[in-house]
Simulated scan of single mutants.
Amino acid sequence: MHMTDVLAAADISKAVAAFAAADSFNHKQFFVMCGLKAKSKDDMKKVFHILDKDQSGFIEQEELCLILKGFTPEGRNLSDKETTALLAAGDKDGDGKIGIDEFVTLVSES
């Protein structure tokens, strides 16, 4: 499955371009701009599985820094500061990673 199976390519490109500058990433705005927030929980779970590159059932810090590249190869890596902030926003149980339910909550609350 590809990200464009769930989200419109134009929306992904627009959202990734909006956060091209270092330390500009805002997950709440990004999830709205790319159209993910408006999708069903099932679609959010599909996106989670795409972003969970190692299929561990979690998006770990190493995968979080690549989140924009998960949406499109043209995306940039998040900075350490951005990755830490995203992890803090999504990791509700404090285990250092984001599970599928935490991801759905993170997107829904955006």
Rank of each mutant, 00 (worst) to 15 (best):
Ser40Asn: 11
Asp52Gln: 12
Gly35Thr: 02
Ala88Ser: 13
Ala85Met: 08
Leu66Cys: 10
Ala85Phe: 03
Met44Tyr: 06
Ser40Phe: 11
Gln55Arg: 07
Asn77Ile: 00
Pro73Gln: 04
Glu82Ile: 06
Lys81Met: 04
His49Ala: 03
Cys34Val: 07
Lys39Val: 12
His49Arg: 05
Asp42Ile: 04
Phe48Thr: 08
Ala88Pro: 11
Phe58Ser: 07
Lys37Gln: 09
Phe71Pro: 14
Asp52Leu: 11
Thr83Leu: 02
Gly70Pro: 06
Met44Pro: 03
Asp54Val: 09
Lys45Ile: 05
Glu62Gly: 02
Thr83Cys: 03
Leu87Asn: 10
Val47Cys: 15
Leu51Ser: 15
Thr84Pro: 15
Gly70Trp: 07
Glu62Thr: 00
Glu60Thr: 03
Gly57Glu: 13
Lys45Ala: 12
Ala85Thr: 05
Asp52Arg: 11
Asp54Phe: 13
Gln61Trp: 09
Gln55His: 02
Lys37Thr: 02
Cys34Asp: 10
Glu60Pro: 05
Ser40His: 10
Gly35Pro: 09
Ala38Leu: 05
Gln61Asn: 11
Gln61Val: 09
Lys46Pro: 01
Leu64Tyr: 14
Asp54Thr: 12
Glu74Ala: 01
His49Trp: 07
Lys39Trp: 12
Gly35Leu: 10
Leu64His: 15
Leu86Pro: 09
Ala88Trp: 12
Phe48Ile: 07
His49Ile: 00
Lys45Glu: 12
Leu36Arg: 08
Glu62Gln: 03
Gly57Ser: 08
Thr83Arg: 02
Leu68Asn: 11
Phe71Arg: 13
Phe58Tyr: 13
Glu62Trp: 01
